[in-house]
Design a binder for these strands. Structure first.
Lengths: 276, 276
DNA sequence: ACCACTCGTTGCCGTAACTCGAACAACAAT
DNA sequence: ATTGTTGTTCGAGTTACGGCAACGAGTGGT
């Protein structure tokens, strides 16, 4: 009842301070996703109280969101007791895997990734850009492959991987600008490329030779080679990378054998991509 | 259309006889999920107009939801032109695969499923109950395995599979009652068990011998064997099944060899489940 | 060439429904 | 028994959600 009971002309009260360029259309659905995000990143199930504390929301509000999400199958109670809290439900597995199979690259690249993992014995990834980030679409573990923290579905920065740099090198220049401007060039290891001109220089050389390297830029002790998958118009729709311990990925193997294998695979995928 | 495998009647009327008192907690988040559901079940990308028509919403409303979901990464524009519509984004892959790996059964069952697929050459599934339905948590295709319509993440009815019946047979009796009451016993093929007493009779025999059969009850021409995975207290947390063409899964192989293999695998998983 | 139709997008306004705080029942720890 | 949790329900207040109408752009018909 403060003022402006009708019409509400003068002041807009809070006006959602903070975001300068936010257009207007934002939603409460975002809150539900924040709940999901909290549940996803937590190892243990969480209840309304714990979630409310993390998100700064009232317990009753969280309760309502959870009830709705439960009805949708997006979350499930962890145990039989109602004190056990909730965790992310498998309904989202349906959505997620559906999205993956709907991606034009997945059915073509997955078998090739498997082949490469078999041939090289290392970890092989198919990575695609989404928004201004990278998504690990599909991965296959070779016999001697190392375990990193990355999972299928993981999101990361394009400038931190071999595959990501291969993608950046074959994107329209203004697109690269947008991505760098919105995401910046955060470092993951001391070797990560954080200098803008250094990055553009690398991208130029990647365009020349057709593939990219990653020398401990994402994980200490890990090297990788990445090659882009381009569509008819030449822009990258994704990339495939082979990664392994630095002492195994070096010299002739890193600079010639693996790139050859990779380019053979990506070339084949590109052909199927155009004539499929 | 008409398929609408899940969700179904979302209209306010609904309220099947019985409990007319819908609690209260329903949300607009549900609308966002309906948008996602439509995008998931559609082969082609959809825009605000098409979605609005299918969901009976104003274009502007759908637009708002899409804008929010896009900001969250849950949907993405299909093409560069803004006329191309949206599809489900890979953000949900992150949620979905995370939920799968968080499931206590997945890391234990997946390698065993791979083994069984290798040994039998058939299609092998790990299935878990969620809510009152079944979810295909993980599947592996053997060398000669057949392709059915099922995918990882697919949801179905517990009484229609071998694995599902194996689960039902090792659930508390009142739980089974709940499930049958809420879901009914819909038929998928002429062979599906639709009679309640027939089902309970089968469940009793499944408990006695320790595994379940499926003779063309879910897909015509397809047979399967399923064995439960029980936790310390004896209730089923999931099941593993082997399925293949009826003419290959019969006689001694169906009734002795495959059950032996299956029970060996599930037993091992159960041990790891208790002491891991 | 025009026109008629659809598309996506954007303000605006009324009101549905989302958020919050308080209160209640169970349970745990002191 | 007291004090602290927890999950859950109910009501009141106000946000922001949903529908309508209009704009700019693209497409197909004639």
């Amino acid at each position: 009842m403060d003022d402006s009971a009708s019409g509400g002309s003068t002041d807009r009260s809070a006006d959602t301070a903070g975001d300068g360029t936010e257009p207007r259309p934002v939603t409460t659905t975002a809150t539900s996703f924040e709940v999901l995000e909290q549940l996803r990143t937590s190892d243990d199930p969480l209840g309304p109280a714990a979630l409310g504390r993390r998100l700064d929301l009232a317990r009753s509000t969280v309760h309502r969101h959870l009830a709705t999400l439960e009805r949708l199958g997006a979350v499930v109670r962890a145990g039989d007791d109602r004190r056990d809290g909730y965790r992310v439900g498998l309904r989202l597995l349906d959505f997620g895997l559906g999205a993956r199979e709907a991606h034009r690259l997945y059915p073509l690249a997955a078998p090739k990734v498997d082949e490469l993992a078999e041939e090289t014995g290392e970890k092989v990834w198919c990575i695609v850009p989404e928004g201004s980030r990278s998504v690990h679409l599909y991965g296959a573990a070779g016999r001697r492959s190392v375990r990193t923290g990355v999972r299928e579905g993981s999101r990361g920065y394009l400038h931190q991987h071999a595959a990501g740099k291969a993608i950046l090198a074959h994107l329209p220049a203004d697109r690269v600008r947008e991505i760098v401007d919105t995401e910046g060039l955060p470092a993951q290891t001391p070797e990560t490329v954080t200098d803008e001109s250094e990055l553009f220089e690398q991208l130029e050389r990647i365009r020349e030779r057709g593939y990219a390297f990653n020398r401990e830029e994402s994980v200490p002790g890990l090297h990788a080679v990445g090659a882009p998958v381009r569509d008819e118009s030449g822009v990258a729709v994704g990339a495939i990378s082979v990664s392994g311990p630095a002492n195994r990925l070096k010299g002739e193997r890193l600079h010639e054998a693996l790139p050859d294998l990779l380019l053979g695979a990506t070339n084949e995928v590109e052909i199927n991509l155009s004539h499929g």
